[in-house]
């Protein structure tokens, strides 16, 4: 009789690799054979993981087609076995796995589209946090504002890509894909928020993206503004900052 730990290890290995297993001797034959029992269980695990992945990455699935996606999902599930009891945690490394897949070299935008879908998934399941009460800003004078630092919403997502990922993503939310989608429009920057139960995607300019990323990296308001101006000299700080406070993207402030 093997120890429980060995039994569990063999079982986990079998679920991932599906090869000959010493478990066969440990499972009783009933109406269905031990081999069939194990096979059924393994298939259910594979199907559940595949469906979870398709649930998170529906646009990737449309882009590459169901057959290819199923194959990629299967390979991913074996290379990155689910290590959490929460199925929502499964699939984090899928964008990187797609980037490493030689068969997808023709689709350089695909990993970033996948990253956008994961960011969407995280924004959807992320924590709630109330936005900053603007009244709290009154404890500082305008002259002190350049040195202030802001905390951003813990559940928000921020993503920049050399490819028009949001345009691609949006096109796949419709029933019908446009005749052809021109990817020549280049880089896109996206902010993902979830004010209530709905995930919202906002298209940012490069300067806005740079500004937010800097704030998220603990830059002062002045440092973040500097970075944004380098990107775009006409960056409208006043309207952006007000919108970020009003939209609940900024949740806290400190010196």
């Amino acid at each position: 009789m093997p120890a429980l730990r060995d039994l569990q290890r063999d079982f986990a290995a079998y679920l991932v690799a599906g090869e000959e297993t010493p478990l066969l001797d440990q499972v009783a034959d009933a109406r269905v054979s031990a081999a069939q029992c194990l096979n059924i269980h393994r298939n259910n695990v594979a199907i559940t993981l595949g469906e979870a992945l398709a649930g998170v990455y529906p646009v990737v699935q449309q882009l590459v087609g169901s057959a290819f996606f199923a194959d990629a999902a299967k390979k991913y599930s074996r290379a990155h076995p689910c290590r959490s009891g929460n199925l929502h945690d499964f699939g984090r490394e899928f964008p990187a796995a797609l980037a490493a897949d030689e068969r997808l070299k023709q689709l350089p935008y695909l990993p970033d589209v996948a990253a956008l879908e994961w960011a969407f998934h995280e924004a959807f399941h992320g924590p709630h946090a109330p936005g900053l009460d603007p009244g709290r800003l009154r404890q500082w004078s305008a002259m002190q504002f350049p040195g202030l630092r802001f905390s951003l919403h813990p559940g928000m997502g921020l993503l920049g890509s050399q490819h028009p990922v949001l345009t691609i993503w949006e096109a796949h939310q419709a029933e019908q894909l446009p005749e052809a989608l021109d990817l020549g429009i280049g880089a896109e920057y996206v902010l993902l928020t979830r004010p209530q139960l709905e995930v919202e995607l906002h298209r940012l300019t490069a300067a806005e993206f740079t500004f937010l990323r800097a704030l998220g990296n603990d830059a002062t308001l002045e440092q973040a503004t500097d970075a944004a101006i380098v990107c775009d000299d006409s960056f409208d700080l006043e309207s952006r900052l007000t919108a970020l406070v009003a939209g609940g993207v900024i949740v806290d402030v400190r010196e």
Partner: peptide, 26 residues
């Protein structure tokens, strides 16, 4: 999902055949 079909085999090399074919310049 009580299929006993072995879903682990890689029968053939797949290529993407989805909507990616309609993205121009990608």
């Amino acid at each position: 999902g009580t299929s006993t079909v072995d879903g682990q085999k890689d029968a053939f090399v797949l290529v993407p055949t989805g909507t990616c074919e309609r993205l121009v310049g990608g």
